[in-house]
Simulated scan of single mutants.
Amino acid sequence: MRRTIVAGNWKMNTTPAQGVELLEGVAAIKGEAKASVELIVGVPFTHICAVGKAAQGTGIAIAAQNCADHAKGAYTGEVSAEMLASMGVEYVILGHSERREYYGETSETLNKKIELVYQNGMSPIYCIGEKQQEREANRQNEVCRAQIQEVVFNLTPEQFEKLIIAYEPVWAIGTGLTATDDQAQEIHHYIRQVLAEKFGEQAASKCPILYGGSCKPSNAKGLFEKADVDGGLIGGASLNAQDFVGIAKAF
């Protein structure tokens, strides 16, 4: 049995006080979902201490949305993996399409970040996925394969065991568009096949692959029923406690 995970990505939203209120709202009703469903919230750097404190004892894990690609030094404005780990962060979201698109993150950069995350005892949530023009050109498999080979294939088997992959069709983020259940299953299954080429079928079968494109309570059940969809990386819907837990209840 693979892990089932619903991870929220709050992006650049809420103040720390609002984040604590949101976390407390999720914690109050998380019991409505199956205990086997893991909940993770990806919060802004400014929220980690306050929201992390509120999350203690709730079973909700804290993720950062990014980290620096250097361990320490004269990098004004950056936040290191060591700093995040020292605050109780368990996961770091890496390779999100917005980081790739707006901030020019490359596989070279992401290889540095992912190694630092592992060195500091955390686990990466590694995002991959194609843009609309790439989907229209039927290049989604090619794009996802490259993003896996250039980063994930550099991991050791021990590191791979701790990896979470999030497939995010870029054309479905914040647009209201969603991959059909069958489209999601098709690409998730392909991703697992690519992983098996490097790490073997048994290891690949244990890797959680989350869907990350406009997932909400109304469409989560159909997506999560698919054999290779192990949960979601949730954007907008994670900013509402009822919606976030509603997605978790879809399992």
Rank of each mutant, 00 (worst) to 15 (best):
A7P: 00
A7D: 01
G8E: 05
M12T: 12
M12L: 15
N13F: 07
T14K: 08
P16F: 03
A17L: 15
E21C: 08
E24N: 14
G25T: 05
A27H: 11
A28C: 14
A28N: 12
A33S: 06
K34W: 14
K34Q: 14
E38I: 11
L39G: 03
V41L: 06
H47S: 08
C49R: 10
G57V: 08
T58E: 09
I60W: 07
A68Q: 05
K72T: 04
G73Y: 11
G73C: 12
V79Q: 00
S80R: 02
E82S: 04
E82I: 00
M83E: 07
L84P: 00
I93Q: 02
L94F: 02
R100F: 00
E101L: 00
Y102G: 00
Y102F: 09
E105K: 01
E105T: 04
E108L: 08
T109S: 15
L110Y: 03
V117Y: 04
Q119R: 13
S123P: 05
G129R: 02
Q133S: 15
E136L: 15
E136Q: 12
A137T: 10
R139V: 14
V143L: 08
A146Y: 05
I148Q: 13
Q149V: 12
V151K: 02
F153D: 13
N154V: 14
T156R: 01
P157S: 07
I165A: 01
A166G: 06
Y167P: 03
P169M: 04
V170A: 07
V170M: 06
W171H: 10
G174H: 05
T178A: 14
T180P: 08
D182N: 15
Q185E: 14
H188N: 03
V194G: 07
K198A: 12
F199K: 02
E201N: 15
Q202E: 14
A204M: 10
A204N: 07
S205K: 12
C207W: 06
C207G: 10
I209W: 01
I209T: 02
L210S: 01
Y211I: 05
G213R: 02
G213P: 01
G213Q: 02
S214W: 06
L223A: 09
A227L: 13
G232L: 08
A237N: 08
Q242K: 14
D243M: 14
D243C: 13
V245G: 07
A248F: 12
K249L: 11
F251R: 13
